[in-house]
Amino acid sequence: MPLRGGAYLGEQKYYVYFRRPADVSQMTLLVWKHQDRDDDRWLYLPALDLVKRIAASDKRTSFVGSDFFYEDISGRSIDADSHELIETTDNYYVVRNKPKRPGEVEFAYYDVYIHKQSFLPVRTEYIDDSDNLYRRYTALAVENIQGYPTVVKARMENLRNGGTTELTYSGIDYDLGLPEDVFSERYLRRAPREYLQ
């Protein structure tokens, strides 16, 4: 397992299955995260029975009409930004992150509040070129599941238009021993229901 400064840097794969609301029910998102090139992303839209490849240029665009971006769902590479610890409070480490390629993103920088005990990022504030806060992520609820502190409810706010989206995670299990082929395009259309109970 490749580590640098405690961060996992190996290849990662995400499979996300949506139950609610009704307009995204049975939709699936598959992400293969790479360290040396752009991530691969696919989205299955059940209403159209369509698998859509998400272009790398779309990672900072709305995720199916929500206030989250594709990159918010699957994560941003640690190497995409430079990082600086700017503050330490009783509860948080505050890290400022500046993009190495500012022309590819709409923010000038973002500050992440990392909870000291759990090391979870519980708030992220995105600042534009005019030094205005325009997006904010907040972890609304954290539970200890199988020994892992886990965000179970989160909110993204668009402070420019007043939009807000909340995500709730349920039925969370760790260390399931998922077979590798679950993280393939064929399971976008045919969700592995034995693991989604």
Rank of each mutant, 00 (worst) to 15 (best):
Y15N: 07
P21H: 02
A22R: 10
A22L: 04
S25F: 12
Q26R: 00
Q26E: 13
M27D: 00
M27S: 14
T28Q: 08
T28W: 02
T28D: 05
V31A: 10
K33H: 04
D36M: 05
D38C: 08
D39F: 01
D40L: 04
R41Y: 00
W42D: 07
L43K: 00
Y44L: 09
Y44W: 10
Y44F: 15
P46C: 07
A47E: 09
D49V: 07
L50S: 11
R53Q: 11
I54F: 08
S57W: 10
D58W: 08
D58I: 04
T61E: 03
S62M: 00
F63T: 12
F63K: 06
V64S: 05
S66M: 05
Y70A: 15
Y70E: 09
I73R: 08
I73C: 06
S74Y: 04
G75L: 09
G75K: 06
G75H: 10
I78V: 11
D79F: 13
D79Y: 14
H83G: 12
E84Y: 03
L85W: 07
L85H: 09
N91Y: 06
N91R: 14
Y92D: 12
Y92T: 12
Y93I: 05
R96H: 00
R96Q: 06
K98M: 03
K98V: 12
K98W: 00
R101V: 15
G103C: 02
G103Y: 02
E104F: 07
E104Y: 02
V105Q: 02
V105N: 01
E106C: 01
F107N: 13
F107K: 10
Y110H: 14
D111F: 04
V112R: 12
Y113T: 06
Y113C: 13
I114K: 08
I114S: 02
H115L: 12
H115E: 12
H115M: 04
K116T: 00
K116C: 00
